[in-house]
């Protein structure tokens, strides 16, 4: 078995490449695919190098080719195939495409310490949803929030809150998917309130390029209505707001 190390390593690498390319849908973006392949290559090479017998067996066919101990046509095939592969890779990398360039963007832009809401200064730090109570009135507020959501947000964020509303396809970036484990569940309600209230134009400079089409909802909704929508999108997507232990949030104002 060990004498086939080179071919097993090569086969494994190709298997990983094919698996990543074909078995995962939607396709993995090229940036992540490259990352995975580099790490896989490093892992395979290190594994081979970590044992003297494996390392010698791995080198044997390479040595045989480059030291001329194989038939001439094999040597020629390898020596032609290598630059052709490099050429192919270079062509694929440099060939022009009609695709829009990628936009490196941050997942969650940092919230400001405070922002203006209808002329009133709101401090984000320590801000809590005043409508999130334990009583029976919570269900009614969520229902109201749902109503507001369907009148205003549904068109972009969708019926299932997955960012797949009727208009979603025309936006870059597309609307947020509230069902994604990395969106609402990661954030405190104060953060979501800030994002809804100030929309795309309220994003900090550090968040560029963003190009968010999110309206500034404080121009259309009251403070209570925004909080109700926040209640609904958490409830409707099955998420729970991020919280911290009481008394430990010593944050600056």
């Amino acid at each position: 078995m060990i004498r086939w190390t080179f071919f097993i390593a090569l086969g494994l690498w190709l298997l990983v490449l094919v698996g990543l390319k074909l078995l995962i849908a939607p396709p993995i973006p090229a940036s992540v695919l490259t990352l995975y392949l580099v790490m896989t290559t490093v892992a395979i090479v290190l594994f081979v190098m970590a044992n003297e017998d494996r390392w010698r067996a791995f080198q044997a066919p390479l040595r045989a080719v480059f030291e001329g101990r194989v038939p001439r046509f094999v040597q020629a095939a390898v020596l032609i195939a290598l630059p052709v592969l490099v050429m192919g890779a270079a062509y694929l990398r440099l060939a022009p495409t009609h695709d829009a360039p990628f936009e490196p963007r941050v997942v969650h832009p940092e919230p400001p310490s405070g922002f203006n809401l209808k002329g009133k200064r709101i401090s984000v730090s320590g801000l809590k949803n005043p409508l999130r109570t334990d009583g029976p009135e919570l269900a009614a507020r969520i229902a109201e929030g749902k109503n507001i959501y369907y009148r205003n947000c549904f068109f972009c964020h969708g019926d299932s809150l997955a960012g797949d509303g009727h208009f979603a396809g025309v936006f870059r970036p597309i609307p947020a998917n509230f069902r994604d484990v990395g969106t609402l569940s990661m954030l405190q309600e104060s953060y979501v309130f800030w994002r809804v209230a100030t929309g795309g134009s309220g994003l900090p400079k550090g968040a560029t390029p963003w190009n968010s089409a999110m309206p500034v909802w404080q121009d259309f909704l009251s403070e209570d209505e925004i909080w109700k929508v926040v209640l609904y999108i958490y409830a409707g997507s099955g998420s729970t707001p991020r919280t911290w232990e009481e008394g430990t949030h010593a944050g600056h104002q």
């Binding site: 973006p29 360039p101 994604d180 484990v181």
Partner: peptide
């Protein structure tokens, strides 16, 4: 290692983002 180095916010071209339905991949996310 692969899991640890998987970025949350993926560098993707326009067509890749359309295919993923956003900047987050539904599986890799």
């Amino acid at each position: 290692f692969l899991v640890w180095a998987t970025p949350r916010s993926i560098i993707a071209t326009g067509s890749e983002m359309v295919a993923m339905g956003g900047s987050h991949h539904p599986f890799l996310g």
